[in-house]
Simulated scan of single mutants.
Amino acid sequence: MNYAHQTPYSDPGRYAELLDALPTDVPGLAAAVQNLLIHYRGGGIEFTGEHLEEVNNRWVEEILATDQRRNGTPLTAPRAPEDRVAGCCRDYALLFVSALRHQGIPARSRIGFATYFQPGWNADHVIAEYWNGDRWVQVDAQLEPGEHWGFDVQDLPAGRFRSAAETWRGFRSGEIDGETCGVDPTLPLRGGWFIRDYVFLQVAHLNADELLLWDGWGAMADDLEMDLTPTDELAALLVAADAGDKAAEAKVRDWYHADPDLHPGEKIMVHTPTGGPPYSVDLGTRQKVPQGK
């Protein structure tokens, strides 16, 4: 996979020229992304209606279209928090990745769990990685740098973020308590099943399908009442691929495209966090699918 190329999800489409003016340095680019987006749950604003629904913007082109309808100014022009596009960690990472790819820099989004938001809690999270010519550098594009983090959020130290595959292997070995892995300690969206579903998301994002965190497809499930051997094998391959094993990387890619349990089809089920009922989206037409079709 050539991570310098846009995917259907990261492609800015008709708004590509707007990315020309974005900074080319990592701190400046991260700040520009933070100026365009606001977290739908953590921005200090209670979003409702259409503004809240922006968290389901699937494509960068759609995110930029929303911004331009509301603001209509260059992406470097300051936006008030209430005028930013509502999103989540996935959107910060994907927009950051899109801008780097626009500059010809290999970049990708990574699915996993962050250890730095609450002590003892592994928060589901998406970060970005870019290739600096020597190694993959991990960037949390959602966070402003600061001494209070105790580390560089634009070059994450090892262990601060664990991929879903690493977390799954830790869960299976007993090193990680699955009940400490999820969306929030106050919510039931946690546990081994949740980690397993995120392994599916990790594979999708690495293979040009940067799906929403609440999308469902294939063999995803809200329990572990199935043979877990394939997930164990997949996680092992993903960890090996991250360590530079090209054969493992190729095997994951081939497996992803061949197995309908891993690869989303033409339609995806969206379990929106906005409180509405689940619905389907046709990934080709980018339109909601009427129920029963």
Rank of each mutant, 00 (worst) to 15 (best):
G182H: 01
G87W: 07
A219E: 15
R286G: 02
L143T: 02
Q118N: 04
M220G: 10
W255Y: 08
C89L: 04
R58D: 05
C88G: 00
E50L: 05
K267Y: 06
I38Y: 01
N71G: 08
E129Q: 07
D91G: 00
P278T: 01
G265C: 11
E144R: 14
Y15N: 11
G49Q: 03
Y116N: 07
T180D: 15
A204N: 11
A236T: 03
V183N: 05
V55W: 06
Y15T: 09
A247N: 13
D227F: 08
R196D: 05
R70W: 02
Y92A: 06
G191L: 06
Q287Y: 09
G120D: 05
E166V: 03
G159F: 05
L22N: 06
V289G: 01
Y116E: 12
E266N: 11
L211I: 04
W214I: 08
G192C: 06
T66H: 14
A80T: 00
Y9Q: 10
G49Y: 00
A4N: 10
R160M: 14
I176G: 04
E179D: 08
A107N: 02
I45S: 12
Y92L: 04
D124M: 11
F200T: 14
A99W: 02
A243H: 15
E53S: 12
V85T: 09
H102V: 01
H39E: 14
K267L: 12
P278G: 05
L64C: 04
A141N: 02
T73Q: 15
T7Q: 00
G218L: 09
Y92H: 04
P264Q: 09
E175L: 07
R190Y: 11
P277K: 06
A243D: 14
P23V: 09
L189Q: 06
A86N: 11
L234Q: 06
F194I: 11
Y15H: 15
G44F: 05
R160T: 10
D124I: 10
W131K: 05
I127R: 03
D209C: 13
A107W: 01
W59M: 13
D254G: 14
R58W: 05
P23L: 06
Q6D: 15
D245N: 09
D197V: 06
W214R: 08
P273I: 04
Y92R: 00
V139M: 11
G265F: 03
D20Q: 12
L94F: 03
T229D: 13
P119M: 03
